[in-house]
Design a protein around this nucleic acid. Structure first.
Lengths: 229, 229
DNA sequence: CCGCATCCTGACGCCGTCTTGACGCGAACG
DNA sequence: CGTTCGCGTCAAGACGGCGTCAGGATGCGG
């Protein structure tokens, strides 16, 4: 799944530096979004909500400090400023405007990666959805990786849990065979729909009141399965 | 007592720099606590819970990175590292150990103040856990690095302790093989799950009543381990 | 240089998990 | 009405993870 890797937005107008940053970040497991103007950068920040922003102060179309202020007006995404200017006043202004860090060119890849790591480390998770889902007598704690039924802990094998977690993340929606297979067994096993039947069976036996007449784990014939509450 | 102004703990052994930092911080509205050794600094951090820590890496009694790790074992107070060494490796090590920022001497007052401001700005809720954790007959003192069982001191080797500390920091949660391996043996040994089995074994023998049927150090098959109380 | 503690590594048996196959059932279809 | 297909069910064997132990390498202090 590509969505669990942090997304970094790089705003810089130098093509070389842009390529360099892109490669460095990707090789360290980040997804990267690039923009070569302030306007484009701000637009992407709004639409993609990156986990961190790398901002070069020397942009052609707008002052870098203004970009920081604009971003800070509506979000708290960590901003790491890059600049050729190393004067103390520049740093102070940027940091006070809302930047989280200030790197003076030239800087090393490893330091950059480490500082991005710091920025991501102390971000506050908005926690969009509650990591705990309940339906019927069943409670799934995605964070603690525990499942209880009538308050009693239910032991699930890794595959069973992965399958349950995949369904729990999209309650009410249909999950096709392909989606489930890809999520649990990887894209190489898209044909093995038999796996699904076997594991759905054990899940029902462990979680449903009457496994033969499932209330929550319903099968959509020829399509996939659906979790109903 | 002016308790609403942020409290900064400065750990440094150079009297001049100490005085300088003290004056600079106070003039910007901070309360200041000073220590000239690592041991004293850690003690003050525990007793006063400062809002930020300024740490000079060149301490006489202990390695600065070790101090960072010790503090990070039980708290998330922002740590700004000061060092005369400006090499990239030094910075990366400190930042990865848990430091929030790295300043190379000499640095300007205003930049220092600005960076402290950043650290305080994005501090998360003081998610400090008590440096002392108990479960069953076992007591772990993360600050003193001591472990007792039924009141008797238990000797742990460095790796054993690191593994225990990693688990103690997230009681009840699953710690995956990767997380534990990264924390104890570094990211280079993510494959050596065998290490985990060996050390979990010795930990259980030293701490569990019945090592064959562990109550606290439970294994989550195929995933990792979990510390239950 | 020696001894000790710690760490790494390999071997082995056990047990849970995964895979695979067989079979019954019902619905859809010709 | 018979066939076919998808699905549920069960069981058995393969597989790999896990715990366990011990020998050897390594590093450190005396």
């Amino acid at each position: 799944m590509s969505a669990d890797e942090p997304l970094v937005l790089v705003i810089d107008d130098e093509p070389q530096l842009l390529r360099f940053l892109n490669a460095a970040l990707k090789s360290h497991g980040y997804r990267v979004l690039t923009a070569d103007t302030a306007a484009e950068g701000e637009r992407l920040a709004v639409s993609h909500r990156p986990d961190a922003i790398l901002l070069d102060l020397g942009l052609p179309d707008r002052d870098g400090l203004e970009v920081v202020a604009n971003l800070r007006a509506w979000c708290e995404i960590p901003i790491l400023v890059i600049s050729a200017r190393g004067k103390e006043d520049d740093k102070v202004e940027a940091l006070e405007a809302g930047a989280n860090d200030y790197l003076t060119k030239p800087f090393g890849t490893r330091e950059l990666i480490a500082r991005i790591g710091v920025a991501l480390r102390n971000r506050v998770q908005p926690l969009t959805i509650s990591p705990i889902i309940e339906f019927g007598a069943i409670r799934v704690d995605l964070e603690g990786r525990t499942v209880t039924r009538h308050g009693e802990k239910i032991h699930l094998t890794p595959n069973e849990y992965k399958l349950l977690a995949a369904m729990v993340r999209h309650p009410g929606k249909i999950l096709t065979h392909n989606q489930l297979l890809k999520e649990v067994w990887g894209a190489a096993n898209l044909q093995q729909t038999h796996y699904l039947r076997v594991y759905m069976n054990t899940l029902r036996h462990k979680l449903e009141e009457d496994p033969a007449q499932p209330r929550h784990f319903q099968t959509e014939l020829g399509v996939g399965y659906r979790l109903v509450e």
